[in-house]
Design a protein around this nucleic acid. Structure first.
Lengths: 335, 335
DNA sequence: TTGTACGCGTTATCAA
DNA sequence: TTGATAACGCGTACAA
């Protein structure tokens, strides 16, 4: 069991601990080739592995960062996380993933835990509820970057997309295809991202003088979306187009359609706010707003890295634009 | 910045460090209510946060485990990882995820790194190539569990499925549906899982006296599958049924079909070895072999936990059975 | 060029 | 019931 320590190597090589330490940290400047060789042999001989924990304690950094994900089941989260891991791997910095399930208490627990573990910085998909905690981190100068969501009044830099404008654009697109009654399905309006999307939706409808019926805004937990949709479509004037607020909502819509024997593209048009990897493989291919998830992850990582290195203290928000990818699902071919 | 240490709390409360330590570890046995109160106040006063790094150094455990994933893009890997994280969260043990991309060098780098970080144990989807390394871990008594794959001759406990039998069953199923020419698409045969599946395939064909044409076995990198399929279907006698070796192969098959204007269920039958979450949402719904990924993750976690706690030293392999989920894609309705 | 000695923040031991 | 002191393994002045 990992018993070999620097002292052992030193003894084996017949030098002192500090010389070994120098060697391991590649500070060869004043070291004789002879000792170098001796130490190297001793290291191999004993199969020495440095203890990062001890090093961390001394150096006050762990070469680990944490990422607190809102919901790991979102494709978007996975892609962002992947990008972050890729980025930090380049610097031999490890990423610890935590899944907060959009639960403020879990979020708090994880943030506390990761800081206790002395991770060098955090990327958070914030629930937005732990305002006190966010402020603490900011005040103490702890490196944090928010992802996907902004929290009102908290000056932590965020990487996000233009939710309002993108939703506006996709609704505009549906209107241009001749739709009058457009509904939207989203998870509860607890976070900025979802709210911004709904605002974009409303704003577009208003701008074009379209019906803005509150019943057309379904905002419910995923498990309840199916029923809500069933009710909505049972009404006298069901919507002719639907916007799914994210990938999970999208899957619920597809399930609902299948069960209700409705066909997308015939019975109603469909668009979704999220990148769907199998968008082309469903029938019909689905119109979507694609977020640049990988780039966003990279960007947030870069911001965090600069904060950690103190290279850049005045890090600003970054807002990405989404891409409207038009496929057949949003066209209505009723005949 | 996180400067307040146990010594500060001790001074503030007017007691010694050791007493504070006792308090923090809830060893109240011989502690007066008075000191308890004093320490508690001091902790809140100073906003003290314990330093887990220092604790780890002393206790020789980090309350972290590592998981080395073969390929994060597999749904299966994600589900297993999720289960592992869930399990260990119960014990306040953190999980570090690494993605080895099925690359032995990356695998080695990660294993070394995680051990240097003193993580308490490892769950690995092994590439199977770093035999030396596996043996080292085993010999030094380091807690490791293999996931999804077994490595020949290495006595590390593994959690896997009955790949041979399950593939046999699905091929049998296709044969019962009247298929004579059945092809299989899989990634390169570098790991036990894939090899076992191919063996199950061959064995079933043999048992039923069916054609066993080597051209019908496509084993190629994901990016090359499309072309290989095109070639295969351009031959005089294209297969009438296809087994996709996993979810990535499945997506490639769907892409190929779409591009070639072939329709699953009409031009060829399709089955897939993996759980496809949107299996019901593609047209037609797809027959699959579902692996109990969540259970497998739980099981592996449990085994690892026991190894870490030294509760159980003679941990055995666990082999799960898969479920054959028959949908329409495997029936051929040529008329 | 190399060695000595101390500190990082905690826990464990044992004495008081 | 509490406190002094020695680890844990490494990094680093400073001394030699």
């Amino acid at each position: 069991m990992e018993k070999v320590t620097m002292a052992d190597v030193a003894k084996e090589a017949g030098v002192s601990k500090s010389t070994v330490s120098q060697f391991l940290n590649k500070r060869y400047e004043y070291m004789s080739d002879d000792t170098k060789k001796k130490i190297e042999e001793a290291v191999n001989q004993l199969g020495y592995q440095p203890n990062y924990i001890a090093r961390s304690l001394k150096q006050k950094r762990t070469s680990m960062i944490g990422i607190i994900i809102a919901n790991i089941m979102h494709r978007f989260s996975t892609e962002v996380s992947r990008a972050i891991e890729d980025y930090f791997n380049e610097y031999d910095i490890h990423t610890i993933f935590c899944n907060a399930d959009n639960d403020p208490e879990k979020e708090k627990k994880y943030i506390d835990m990761l800081r206790a573990k002395q991770v060098d910085g955090l990327i958070i998909f914030p629930t937005g509820q732990n305002v006190q905690l966010y402020e603490n981190m900011l005040k103490s100068g702890y490196p944090v970057v928010f992802m996907d969501r902004k929290v009102q009044g908290i000056d932590i830099p965020a990487v996000k997309v233009n939710n309002f404008e993108s939703t506006y654009a996709i609704i505009e697109h549906l209107i241009n295809y001749g739709h009058d009654r457009i509904a939207v399905v989203t998870q509860p309006l607890t976070i900025s991202t979802r709210i911004d999307r709904i605002e974009g939706y409303k704003s577009a409808l208003k701008a074009y003088g379209k019906l803005l019926d509150p019943r057309y805004i379904i905002s419910a937990e995923v498990s309840l979306m199916g029923n809500a949709l069933k009710q909505l479509f049972a009404e006298a004037e069901p919507p002719t187009a639907l916007l799914a607020g994210n990938d999970l909502a999208f899957l619920e819509v597809l399930k609902f359609a299948k069960e209700g024997k409705l066909k997308v593209g015939r019975d109603f048009s469909l668009a979704v706010f999220d990148n769907i990897p199998f968008a082309d493989l469903v029938d019909p291919p689905v119109t979507m707003i694609a977020q640049p998830s990988y780039e966003m992850g990279k960007k947030a990582s870069d911001m965090l890295y600069k904060l950690i290195k103190k290279e850049d203290t005045a890090v600003q928000d970054v807002v990405y634009s989404c891409e409207l990818v038009v496929k057949e699902s949003s066209r209505l071919t009723r005949e």
